[in-house]
Design a protein around this nucleic acid. Structure first.
Lengths: 255, 255
DNA sequence: AGGAGCGGCCCGGTGAGTGGAACGCTCCCG
DNA sequence: CGGGAGCGTTCCACTCACCGGGCCGCTCCT
């Protein structure tokens, strides 16, 4: 609803457009994009045209979607690259029948999953790099535990705490308490909060070179997977990943 | 060397900057970036500042590198996402001890590796999404075989055919002959051309929704891996991936 | 001490970018 | 079978955001 940046710089607007296409779950038409950004249609049209020229956006008929150029640029970003390199071998060792290992970072108020290793890595149904809510996943809570309170509190605003299952924690105070405990113990748990029938645990990895915080998690169905048994393994994994990724390792709060 | 676009659009320049950072294999200083793009230092400074604001670029001290925003955007790009989803399960089945399976697309005159599954996916040393030369890899040659001659020929310019080993094919005519044969047979081979001691085969997958061509390859050391034995398996794999990825499947030239 | 290189910043001039308005088109609905 | 609501597209005069030469202070080398 308007407001936002108010800085009509070409670049800012271009990224607004890209952001809309990123959040959309499919190609969009010109008018939708213009409406979603608040940028006049004529301007949107021209900017999108330029983005298409750069292959940052592709156009199929009258629909626009993100283009290969962005994928190529994204693949070249150093931080996640090093994190992946450091984490993949370790993740492979952790992964086992009936559980999935996820690597994620905190980005734009969500969990950005960077890598996923499943079933001894033999299967990997969905591609990695999807977004998940911070409050309803173990990975998210492990990430929240690594940020200072002034960053944390806005992320716990009630409007952000959408109930995804009847078990999702939607009370800011309760969530904050959990975060405090995660900080102390170095483990986050999740039970049916993101999807009924699944549980998970996650542990913080630390803060990468430029303030990006990372965490690693394991998840599975009840019965096939018992989170409390894996705490130690996962913590050791995180401790091995951190230095290799050039991260300032996370360590539990001592008070 | 100057020339290039000559259209001083903000967006064009921004992507030039990002391109330089993409090609660089580490963070760069302001002056280097300005020199590499030909954009005046003052302008480069301001543009980089704006990109940093968008988190498309990160700044550590006085060095600039690509930022998380680009990674996030890149992860949301539809084409490679669907390709990965379609290919991963199939790749997992192909992968075995002693051989690596690669999925790649043709992008900006190079092979852009999208996914890599190694050793039954248990190990995966380097992260995927690196660039490789078209002329010195089986994957690259399988991609070249899928483009029309008017696109192909510029890519075979002698200046592009750098010799990476003594066995790299650097003669445009010889390479063009190979491409013709690949078109007919639907398989590309590579022997010591990219790295001595390794061989590979690759087969075309087809053309995705917006003109992106894809291919799949297997590679390994001599002795541990015999390319000619896997031709059929790989062709079947490609045939299974194509429809799932929404691709127009490639089919051998019939003359 | 000097100077070569760096990143950072100022400020007047100007053309790239802007966006309201108008166009042709395809649909859908009365 | 009109008509009008939506779409993408184009035009063009205005104007303000962007430009970049020049300059500063700093840190390394020599």
């Amino acid at each position: 609803m308007a407001g936002s940046t108010d800085a009509p710089s070409v670049l800012g607007r271009a990224f607004e457009l890209l952001g809309v296409l990123e959040r959309a779950d499919g190609p969009m038409g010109l008018s939708d994009i213009a409406a979603a950004t608040g940028i006049p249609k004529a301007t949107t049209f021209r900017l999108l045209g330029q983005l298409v020229e750069q292959r940052a956006v592709v156009r199929k008929g009258e629909l626009y979607a993100l283009g290969m150029r962005l994928f190529a640029l994204g693949s070249a970003v150093g931080i996640p690259r090093r994190l992946q390199d450091a984490a993949l071998p370790v993740m492979g060792e952790l992964s086992d029948e009936g559980q999935v290992v996820h690597l994620g970072v905190l980005d734009a108020g969500t969990v950005l999953q960077i890598q996923r290793v499943a079933h001894g890595a033999r299967e990997s149904r969905s591609a990695p790099s999807t977004r998940r809510p911070l409050h309803a996943t173990a990975l998210g809570k492990a990430l929240l535990a690594q940020v200072p309170d002034e960053t944390l509190l806005p992320l716990l605003a009630p409007s952000r705490l959408e109930a995804l299952t009847p078990h999702t924690i939607t009370d800011p105070t309760r969530l904050h308490h959990q975060v405090v405990r995660i900080r102390q113990r170095g483990v986050a748990f999740e039970h049916d909060e993101w999807m009924v029938g699944y549980c998970a645990l996650a542990v913080p990895i630390g803060t990468l070179a430029d303030g990006v915080v990372a965490a690693i998690s394991m998840a599975g169905r009840y019965g096939r997977f018992d989170p409390s048994r894996s705490v130690h393994d996962l913590q050791r994994a995180a401790a091995r990943i951190a230095p290799r990724a050039g991260a300032q390792a996370w360590s539990p709060e001592v008070r």
